[in-house]
Amino acid sequence: MSNLIKDNAIVADEWTRVTPPTLGEETVRKQAGKVVLFKLTGEETFSAEQIAATKIPAGKVLVPFSVWCANKDALASRVSQGEVGLLVATHEAIEDVITEVKDINAFALVAVYVERFADGRIFTIGNLLRTRYDFKNELRAVGDVLRDQLFFLKRSGFNSYLIRADRSATEALASLKDFSEPYQGAVDIAQPAWRRTIR
């Protein structure tokens, strides 16, 4: 059974996630330089060789940002047919992604990958995609996604959630309704409680 929740229902996942192959060499870790220090320390990124060796199958594909960058031209027509989704990791600077892709709404799907549950950058990234970059299509959380993030993810602009494979999406679904009247304005409900109702 599918572990994908989209707009309050469990649905089949039509997207194939593209993952660069491991090439048997050591994983490359970015150097901790001055500016990137806080963004990239320790996080795995794909090497140029891995990216070059990546095969992109037919059908709807979810492609890591770095892989898309290397295959922009080849993928252009598939993008316009709504067959390409963009996979962004929480340590990738969203403003760089936006600069690179130009029209984010060209993608039918943007998925944000969170490696660890405790990584709350995903919320800011979702928020920015919706409020600053005006992304209108499906926004999905993937990776270490468990039911206890869902309420916050929804409020941060996500509308689909791929629940970690060993957990039940049915149970997770309930969490979208954990709280009925949130206090503060956020992406889903822009007005804070005191502007929505007479308190």
Binding site: F117, A118, D119, G120, F123, T124, N127, Q149, F151, F152, L153, K154, R155, S156, F179, P182, Y183, Q184, A186, V187, P192, A193
Partner: peptide, 14 residues
Amino acid sequence: RQWSTFHPEFALLP
């Protein structure tokens, strides 16, 4: 206090 309670963007800070 109300604003910070379950503030979705800041639920899992560093």
